[in-house]
Write a protein that binds this DNA or RNA. Structure first.
Lengths: 259, 259
DNA sequence: GTAATAGTGTCTTTCAGACATTATTGC
DNA sequence: GCAATAATGTCTGAAAGACACTATTAC
């Protein structure tokens, strides 16, 4: 009656099994538009897509060839989809050790003409400064960063339009309701740098107003003022530096805030 | 060069594929403790688990037999995991048309001794009043509702301890940061009924203090006061009724609230 | 000085938090 | 009247929101 006994009798072929399990990854970065000295940063959210090759290694036409898609690949039996996503990120960008998070599963019948393919989708936050040595791999003919507006005009493979839409929702909620913004910023940052990151996903007046945000940042329990430390990255006037404090996630009930 | 040509050349067996794709569902309900007339409701969050049969239909010992587990089953090739979860919910409780949501994927190698099994996990919110005609199905010898405290002391199958922990986190965040509480409540409700639901997952003083919550509920943009409509369900004094207003999700940035 | 960004002063209004008080009704 | 729940009155303090103003520095 042990699990071992039970296992011997179990027929793993009893059910139809999927034809594949893949891991896709939406790699987001935030780029500074027109970086000038002593200038307030203006940032832009971008997503990395690859152009699927028209033909595969054997010269045959590729599925959904010539369309843009999220990087991804088949998950191996000895790894999780999250590990596969990190491997894919490493292959596409050479970057390791950044924020990677699951946000959805795509399993609609017929979503992939090759068969019953389950896709586990993730997003990654890669700071601009880590994206120096991007390289294309053999499966992709082109790799490019697009703004969300540009993506609206691209031909996308499979159901990647849906997946990307959800990825943007997921990263928006994460940037605003967790301290995920820290993954786009250097370890110490000014109020205007944090503000620029948040402005890519919100128009909340508390965040967009300079005096309001400059005051507010000092009272946030998950951000620490670094007394005496300043920078002139963003202004001629030396500017106060801050850093994020490690803290378990902050849940503010919608029933207890001001409207 | 069309997708059809490409498909002919594609060998679907090139990669090892999973041995199964299952959909599990954490069925939550909130029960009123000691329901008396004219009494303020006190509620309790409960989760439905099934006891896996010691032996299967052929009399052989069952995998992880005699342990408690989330209801679930294999996803068919012609459906999504969400559809499978709703089917499973219907089989376990006879309930249809309630809130069912994906919250995670479990794919750690070795998590299931039967092979490489991917589990797509969901949770459902079922109002107490819909749970009149619960029935066990043939795969389960027992079905029971447990409090979260009771679950800590049960022997759970596979990695369901992890899955349940994440399900509780997911429903907590959803109850507090979306209007999901409406799925536990009748269409119109008093402040103390909503309060009782929220108290199952939070101790926030704005919610637990009666005068504070009674005032606050009137200023929430997603809740509407029903002028002139009252009930004596919860008190001898007729009590104001409210209802949820349909509204796209409210994201309150952690950077714009009070601490 | 000028321009740009950072940051403060100050006023008004609103709301949270606390606690007492009143209102309503079945028993 | 008593007990229980609902709801309001009222005070204090803190923070939001708005806008003017000062501070600092490269040029």
């Amino acid at each position: 009656m042990t699990n071992e006994d039970a296992l011997k009798k179990y027929d793993v072929k009893k059910y139809r099994t999927p034809d594949g399990y893949t891991s896709d990854i939406a790699i987001f970065t935030i780029m500074t538009k027109e970086a000038e000295s002593y200038k307030k940063p203006v940032m832009e959210l971008k997503l990395m897509l690859i152009k699927r090759a028209a033909t595969n290694a054997e010269g045959h036409p590729n599925i959904e060839g010539d369309k843009w898609a999220l990087p991804g690949g088949f998950v191996q039996a000895n790894e999780t989809a999250l590990q596969a996503a990190k491997r894919e990120l490493q292959e596409e960008t050479g970057v390791q050790g950044v924020h990677v998070k699951h946000f959805g599963v795509y399993d609609r019948p017929g979503r992939d003409p090759r068969g019953w393919i389950i896709t586990n989708a993730h997003y990654a936050i890669v700071p601009e400064r880590h994206l120096m040595h991007r390289q294309a791999n053999d499966d992709a003919s082109e790799v490019e960063l697009f703004t969300l507006e540009e993506i609206n005009h691209l031909a996308l493979a499979f159901d990647h339009e849906d997946i990307i839409k959800h990825a943007v929702q997921a990263i928006t909620a994460d940037l605003l309701q967790t301290t995920a913004a820290k993954n786009f910023l250097p370890p110490t940052f000014t109020y205007s740098e944090l503000q620029a990151v948040l402005r890519t996903v919100t128009n909340d007046p508390v965040i967009t107003s300079d005096p309001a945000f400059s005051r507010k940042i000092k009272s946030l329990p998950f951000i620490e003022k670094l007394d005496g430390q300043t920078t002139t990255r963003t202004s001629k006037q030396p500017t106060q530096l801050f850093r994020f404090v490690e803290m378990e996630d902050i849940i503010k009930p919608i029933y207890s805030v001001k409207y």
